[in-house]
Amino acid sequence: MRRIIHSIRAALRFRGYKPKPLSILSARRWAQQFDKNDRVLAEKLLDGVIYITESETREILVKQNDDLMSRLKVAGLPAKKLIYVSVHDAASSSSVMLNMLRDSANLERRGCKIIDGRDTLGLVKAMNTIGEGALVYVDDFVGSGTQFCTERDFIAKNFVGTFSEFIISPSICEEAFDELSKRDVQVFAGHKHVKSERPLYAECTVFNEKQRQRLTAICNGIDKFGLGFNGLATMVILYRNAPNTVPVMLRGSSNQKPYFGIFPRTTDLPIPAQARS
C-alpha cells in the first residue's frame, strides 16, 4: 500500500516533466527495477528531488530579472543598455529559458537586446553600439560551471566597451559560484543547490553511510558516470529536462536500457522506429 501511495505521489508531483510524462504505473515499474531492499532507498532518493515546474521556472526567471533590472537601473544602466545572451547551442535549454524570459518580461519591448552567444559578431556589434552596459546570460541550470565558463571565456575575448556580467538561472550548484565569482559574473539564481541537499553526498543526512554507499554502487553499476557529470549527483530536475549531473538511477541509461529513468534526458530517450527509417 505504501508503495502505491508513493507512486501516486510521484506521478502527481512530476506529471509535468516534458521529455516523458510520468504515470502511476511507470513510477511503480521504475521502483521495481531495483532489488526489494533497494526500493525503499530508491524511493527515498526520489523524494529528495528538487523539481522545478514550468510555472515556477517562469516565475523565478521573471523575479530574478526584475531584481537585476531594478539594481542596474539604480547603477545607471537602463533596459536599453542590457544585452541578454543565451549560451551553448541554438536549441539548448539556455535559448529556451531566454525565450521564456523574453516573452514573460517583455524584454524586447523594454529595449533590451537579445543575442545568441554563438553569434559573436552580433554580440560585438551590439556591445560596440551600446559601449557601456551589462551582459545578462540566461541558462536553466549551472552544474560545475565549467561548460558555462569555457564558453563565456571564449566570447569574452571579443568584448568591446565596459560591461558588467550577470547570470540568471532557476538553479545553480554551489560548485559553480567560485568560478563565476572569479570572472565577476554575478549570480541571480532562484536556488543555490548546495551539497547538503544531495543525498549521495556525505554532507547530506538523508541516508546513513551504508545506504549512501549502496546507492552509489547501484549508480556506478548502471553506468561508469553513474553519479552524473563530474560526480555532482545533483537533485534539481527542471520540467524541460534533467541535467546530465543527475544520478543515473533517476535519469536511466542511454536509450533507457537496461535501466529506465523517471526523468530520462531528451538525448537518452530511444528514437521511435518511425523516426529511424
Partner: peptide, 27 residues
C-alpha cells in the same frame, strides 16, 4: 519538497573615482 533558497549577490557599493583604495584580491 525542499524550499528554494534564492541566491543573489550583495549590492555593490559605488566607489568614487580618483581614490586610493586598499583592495583584497577577491575584490
Amino acid at each position: 519538497m525542499p524550499i528554494l533558497n534564492p541566491s543573489q549577490p550583495a549590492v555593490p557599493t559605488i566607489v568614487p573615482t580618483g581614490q586610493l583604495r586598499h583592495l583584497t584580491v577577491e575584490q
